[in-house]
Design a protein around this nucleic acid. Structure first.
Lengths: 377, 377
DNA sequence: TGTACTTCGTTAGGAAGTTAACTAACGAAG
DNA sequence: CTTCGTTAGTTAACTTCCTAACGAAGTACA
């Protein structure tokens, strides 16, 4: 590579809004970046010179002179997002304006193949600006203190699996998968236009992604939103057990309860939560009551979150949380225990984690360009 | 008043750091504000002209030329903080550098007298820049939606009591008293130097003040940290009741439990939690076991907060929370249920709410000066 | 008591961005 | 086909702040 042609501050600002908008005219850039027309002209010229932006057409606003439209140039580069899910590994490559360049998905064991496949599909001249890897837990036990510590990118055990396929010298960022999914809802899902909300994921495990002012809240140990540690059961005469809540409100518990409640006359017993929800949607018992009870449980979980954070909006996701038929029950229980908070279902589903990781990677990549040097986590 | 002599941006920045530091030399201001020496010289001259800053002496750094020291000028003005506590009303008047100018305290019913008393003690020429009133609840029921809405400064019922004594035309800000106490711990208490922590207050009621990145988290309805709404009791076969947690872990519950457990042979039964804690500190039963059990309860509450926020530090306050003999028990239960989080006792006590309200008022007042116009909440 | 050294504060020149005014390009209406 | 209104882009003067260099005002030491 030739050199690092450090951008002026205004050129960096213009690049950032251009990446956000995808494509824009100079007047639009001026208004979005809060800069004056002459400054934007100078900045665009600088970006064009660095091949970070290119003239991509003209736009007429009906009346008056038509404006030149600019988009990202070849030197802007791309970013990589990896979702190391429990079953499958998903990989996405995006340009800095968020457009999808390449995609791959493999069973978890062949994670490195997916990364290689996506990277091979990239144009050779576009520099890779950032990598975000979504994992289940960004902390790891710390033997020396008996506590937790943030996992380093190099040391994370899950990370070793794909690190062989990752190109060297590119900043890598580990992020919690629930936080990633929350970002996906923020940018292209149910929380669009919000600045603060919570994303409550209920599947085999439970987790919460917290977005405050557009930023993910990570917490001192990267463990904010680890709802599995909520004290449960909790009463005058009962001691909370560690991690008991997950075993009670997770999808396993729902299926276990179904197995107990099912009678021969009720027909074939559902083996998956999807099937159970389908039966409940038809009003069949005991599926309907089981789901209603689950909704109340989710409502209690939501009340715990609301009592601490008051987020204004909760988005429900995960295999056992995203179904819209839960909403009335959740809202009712939440309203009974706490103040009313908007509750909606996830709009993105399983792809949320990669999509959100890609959004995060794009943000890191843009930072990488505008701040000249590689940004350390 | 003559006019609003709008400050240049650099003069505003210099004023802000001068207020924070109390007094400083020009080189110190330059380094604190991130400005160059010539710019600071110009800004100081501007501030002196507006009587917002005055030359207050010289400081020698051992070797080299001695520097001129500047402090706030008479036109900087002052702010007012009011704590409408359950029993007493406390009022503090501060200069914009945080120094105390006047103080008053009355029984709650005569709140307006305290405000008048403090205002009378002020120099007549110093403009009042901001007022912060700490109250127990900044929300009020909204009949139209059935939910909650933020109380307006004019409409809050508690506020009416003192509004007659408040000078008109000054921006008034209502704030939760727990949030205020948290700010006091942040600036001059157990959380000094932190950017993120939680302040858990346990007294008659329970509440949490959340500070993230030096900012109080208020939540969508101003209800973040209203732990009374945590679902409790919570178990497979028990339905949570509204507000049950407060009745279980608050000071009333502690005294009620003491009344149940006390035998004639145990000596005179304590009538206040202070007395109970004193007996426990001497190792006397059953006070010791009651306090140990209370510590475990507080630890569970702390675990609920930690599971959602992972704040890294929890400061315990309130009549039933601040006693250091709780710490071992709280830490043990928190460590058992969640990851270890630093737990310390409040260093400020009852005055925390006014002190924090004053810190907040100072911040608003400085904003008022630097941004020229009155800042709307 | 000078001389050296260090730190404070100001002066001079330059970089970056803003406002205001002007020129350029386009559509629509006579 | 000209003219007018509107919007895009450029040029010029001014503002603000920075860096670099210099003069001013102290302390330390022979």
């Amino acid at each position: 590579m030739a050199e690092a042609p450090r951008l002026t501050e205004s050129a960096g600002a213009v690049f950032a809004v251009l990446a956000q908008a995808g494509s824009a005219t100079r007047p639009q850039l001026a208004s979005l970046a809060g800069l004056s027309k002459p400054t934007v002209s100078a900045a665009v010229a600088e970006l064009e010179g660095a091949r970070l932006a290119t003239h991509s057409g003209t736009a007429s606003s009906g009346t008056g002179r038509s404006a030149a439209v600019y988009g990202l140039g070849p030197a802007a580069g791309s970013v990589l997002a990896v979702d190391l899910g429990p079953a499958r590994t998903r990989v996405r490559c995006c340009a800095l304006d968020g457009t999808l360049l390449a995609e791959a998905s493999t069973p978890r064991a062949r994670a490195a193949d997916a990364v290689r496949e996506a990277l091979d599909a990239l144009p050779a001249d576009a520099p890779l600006r950032a990598i975000v890897v979504a994992v289940g837990d960004v902390t790891e036990p710390d033997r020396t203190s008996g506590g937790m510590r943030p996992a380093t990118a190099k040391a994370g055990p899950v990370f070793d699996a794909v690190s062989v396929a990752l190109p060297p010298g590119v900043p890598v960022h580990l992020e919690n998968n629930v936080n990633c999914a929350a970002l996906a809802e923020l940018h292209e899902g149910a929380a669009r236009g919000r600045r603060t909300f919570g994303y409550l994921r209920i599947g085999v495990g439970i987790g919460l992604g917290i977005v405050i002012g557009g930023q993910v809240l990570r917490g001192a140990n990267g463990a904010a939103g680890e709802l599995a540690r909520l004290p449960y059961p909790w009463d005058d005469d009962r001691e909370p057990r560690q991690e008991a809540l997950e075993a009670y409100v997770g999808s396993q518990a729902l299926l276990r309860r179904a197995a107990q409640a099912w009678r021969p006359a009720d027909g074939p017993r559902p083996r998956t939560v999807d099937r159970l929800f389908a039966l409940a949607a038809q009003g069949r018992e005991p599926a309907r009551s089981l789901v209603a009870r689950h909704a109340a449980d989710v409502g209690r979980l939501a009340a715990a979150v609301t009592a601490v954070l008051d987020p204004g909006l909760l988005v429900l996701g995960g295999s056992t949380g995203a179904d819209p038929q839960l909403l009335p029950g959740v809202r009712a229980e939440l309203g009974r225990l706490s103040w009313p908070t908007e509750v909606v279902s996830s709009q993105i589903g399983d792809l949320g984690t990669v999509v959100g990781a890609a959004r995060l990677a794009v943000a890191k990549g843009v930072q990488n360009v505008t701040e000249g040097a590689q940004v350390k986590d």
